[in-house]
Design a protein around this nucleic acid. Structure first.
Ligand SMILES: [Mn+2]
Ligand SMILES: [Mn+2]
Ligand SMILES: [Mn+2]
Ligand SMILES: [Mn+2]
Lengths: 224, 224
DNA sequence: AATATTTGTTAGATATATCTAACTTTATAA
DNA sequence: TTATAAAGTTAGATATATCTAACAAATATT
């Protein structure tokens, strides 16, 4: 029994996803960046890029930055859709904490079964965001980008809503848990230390919580 | 990022599972049988058996039948446990039909996350059987074999309970659906055609349903 | 018992995905 | 503007999992 894979191998899927996630405004990614992100040596990345280029999923030219083709972008978005739906399902329907779901979703995102993910989507009521506030691409790969600000860019006196977190590492999320910080929370900025940009904020029954710049940079908020 | 696999590769896991599933009373399996079942050529099977033998998961000697070691049996049972828990979860918690779940479970059984399957087990209330009536191995790999009889071995006048199905193919299960045949059903045997062993049975609001020997051989029943 | 068939093994090829070492191109700093 | 560093490529090796062709052993048939 040849284990059924879709059109792309598991390795290919992970490259596509990484290209999508690393692409900023410009939509381009360097070989080096990709190499570091995937923890795969540059020559290996180069050869995979040639392969994906032959499949018309990546625009590749020697020494130039990498860019997904339209089709490549679609495939990548489909995988990210599966990842984020899975995370939502694990949290909402299976009782996992937001700090536990990424590693499982990293595997389940490769399952080949449109029906499986449609069922998830349906049971979840067609969610638009994952448990970390990241948007879930729709079936056509379109993403509904919300205009968030970094908490670190806000000023004292502002009142904001925590909408998303940038770093999804278990450690970071556990830190947030320990301070009762979760999505949807209304936060007031009391003061900012000009020396190291540390913030003192108030929310719920935390009258004065001190958050480092490193943390504030990773919290995305809505200025309502 | 090296996709995390446990101690065994995906290919190895599929061989272990096949060895477990094909092992009858004696617990042994031939290279040829395994080859046919997995749809992989015999030389490939031989070389994998040498590899698994080196890892002490299979007893392998040239020209002798194959047998899982105690450790190999444990690993296989763990995968089958994940397969069957998954099938149960898909049916009970996600609303799939019993004819839809096998192919999805075939993929999810390879997910590496003890917590994920423990959660499933818990949410399901620690089930002992999967949606097709097959026993779910416990965490130590022990299987609670139930003493079923083939419906085809029963006699007219007997009243039995449908406990399990042998063939899990989507086609067979859809056939059963079309006749309202499902686990737990009480069936009375009305007559058996001696020529071709076709049975006429009665159950629920089906006063006289005719079932071929091929079908009856694949239905396991409890004589209560 | 001799022959034919089936089963299993060996040897060698292929595809995928990775690596290291050596070299080239591009970017940065003196 | 040359020298140095960083980024990227090429070439060749390795590991896994598969295949086909050829041969050998075990089993079944005459
Ligand atoms: Mn994630
Ligand atoms: Mn992944
Ligand atoms: Mn199954
Ligand atoms: Mn499988």
């Amino acid at each position: 029994m040849t284990t059924f894979r879709g059109v792309n191998s598991l390795a290919e899927e992970n490259y596509l996803k990484a290209l999508f996630n690393l692409a900023g405004e410009s939509g381009v990614v360097n070989v080096n960046e990709l190499s570091r992100h995937l923890n795969i040596k540059m020559p290996t990345v180069t050869s995979m890029m040639k392969k994906l280029s032959a499949k018309n999923l990546v625009h590749y030219e020697s020494y130039k930055p990498l860019k997904l083709t339209e089709e490549g972008e679609k495939r990548a978005a489909a995988i990210i859709r599966k990842h984020r739906l899975t995370e939502m399902f694990l949290v909402e329907k299976m009782g996992f904490g937001w700090e536990q779901v990424h590693d499982i979703a990293e595997q389940i995102e490769h399952i080949q079964s449109p029906l499986f993910f449609e069922k998830m989507d349906e049971l979840l009521g067609f969610p638009k965001f994952d448990p970390h506030g990241s948007p879930i691409p729709d079936k056509d790969g379109k993403i509904n980008w919300k205009e968030f600000h970094k908490l670190s860019d806000c000023k004292p006196g502002e009142e904001v809503i925590l909408g998303a977190v940038i770093n999804n590492s278990s450690e970071f999320l556990q830190f947030l848990n320990s301070r009762d910080l979760r999505l949807g929370l209304s936060i007031s900025i009391l003061s900012v230390e000009s020396f190291d940009k540390t913030m003192v904020v108030h929310y719920e029954n935390h009258p004065a919580e001190t958050l480092s710049h490193t943390v504030c940079e990773r919290l995305l908020v809505d200025k309502q």
